[in-house]
Design a protein around this nucleic acid. Structure first.
Length: 125
DNA sequence: ACCGTGACGGCGG
DNA sequence: GCCGCCGCCACGG
């Protein structure tokens, strides 16, 4: 009964969830995603997950390399670039020009939480 | 428990 | 600015 299928490993599931949360017009780096998924330093693993992800509900084109470089896209970098441009990013060759403005590292409240602060939300009391 | 897989990150040349 | 090297990590076989 309920043969509970293999299902994605916890980390994989969280990574996909994080990527799905990246708003259109914004981007995150592999390292940012690893961080948001709770495994800082696992950027390479995130890349591997992206490479194997075939779920169209996951906007993997919004995951870029450090410094705003495009990174890979299964041999279709031009497509990745086009998608990002359509979403409003300025891309020159293999670099996102307005990276600092487009970079997304989670919701402000989530970031505050990571920083151990209570900022953003009203004071708890 | 070891090893190969990778859409990485950082640094040096 | 590009390329190559090495270190890093989670996963599956």
């Amino acid at each position: 009964m309920s043969p509970a299928r293999p299902g994605p490993a916890p980390f994989v599931g969280r990574v996909l969830a994080v990527v799905r949360a990246i708003p259109a017009g914004r981007v995150s780096t592999y390292g940012d995603v690893a961080d948001l998924a709770g495994h800082p330093g696992a950027a390479r693993a995130v890349g591997t997950i992206m490479a194997r992800c075939r779920d169209h509900a996951v906007p993997c084109h919004r995951v870029v390399a450090a410094g705003g470089r495009l990174g890979g896209f299964g041999g279709h970098e031009s497509l990745k670039r086009q998608l990002l441009v359509l979403e409003g990013c300025q891309v020159r060759a293999r670099v996102i020009l307005d990276f600092s403005e487009r970079r997304w590292t989670g919701t402000p409240s989530a970031r505050a939480r990571r920083a151990g602060q209570t900022a953003g939300r009203q004071r708890t009391s």
